[in-house]
């Protein structure tokens, strides 16, 4: 078919001009939305857990933990190795379990959160011991450190980030 002359001129121009606008109108939501304002409260909270093996004797800090070197240096251990790292996005009332050794599991549950802080429940269980259950209220985008002592063999450090 032979388009009329005006159409043959206008059509490519219109398509070229329309393409960006159409794409903008139809494109899916971005994979990473723009950061929300602090006053906005997302439905889920990211809980990140780093499991660090700390021992006496030896020397050095895992390069992956270089950002924590100053804090780790204050602890009564000589070497630190990142052995596990997990991250979860959970809503209020949701819980996750993270095995950190053959007999030990850490259970994390988000009790609630608001615009300023989150309430997180942490339960340490071991097949050969009673569980230790605790609840902390922590400001958003903050972290705390738990040290599970393991006798003379050292300890497992859990750095728990609560971000949203």
């Amino acid at each position: 078919m032979r388009w009329p002359t005006p159409i043959r001129w206008i059509l490519p121009l219109a398509l070229s001009l329309a393409a960006p606008a159409s794409a903008l109108a139809q494109q899916p939501p971005p994979a990473h939305p723009a950061p929300v304002m602090p006053s906005e409260v997302p439905a889920k909270v990211e809980i990140r857990v780093q499991v660090i093996r700390a021992t006496k004797g030896g020397a050095g800090v895992d390069p992956k933990l270089s950002s924590l070197a100053a804090t780790l240096a204050k602890l009564p251990f000589d070497s630190f190795t990142l052995v596990q790292e997990e991250s979860y996005r959970i809503a209020d009332g949701a819980a996750v379990e993270l095995p950190i050794s053959s007999k030990r599991v850490v259970r994390l549950r988000l009790g609630s959160h608001n615009s300023t802080e989150a309430r997180v429940e942490v339960t340490y269980t071991h097949e050969d011991a009673d569980p230790v259950d605790m609840q902390v209220s922590i400001k958003r985008n903050r972290a705390f450190l738990s040290v599970l002592k393991g006798g003379d063999n050292g300890a497992l450090l859990l750095k728990i980030d609560v971000g949203y």
Binding site: P33, D130, V132, M134, V136, S137, I138, R142, A143, G163
Partner: peptide
């Protein structure tokens, strides 16, 4: 907002964290 990327997390200062309860054997 499930894909929300949190701001860099720092250790909580004394007034930014509270241990609500602890239960252990």
């Amino acid at each position: 907002l499930s894909g929300f990327v949190a701001q860099p997390v720092a250790f909580a200062a004394a007034d930014e964290i509270n241990v609500d309860r602890i239960q252990y054997g």
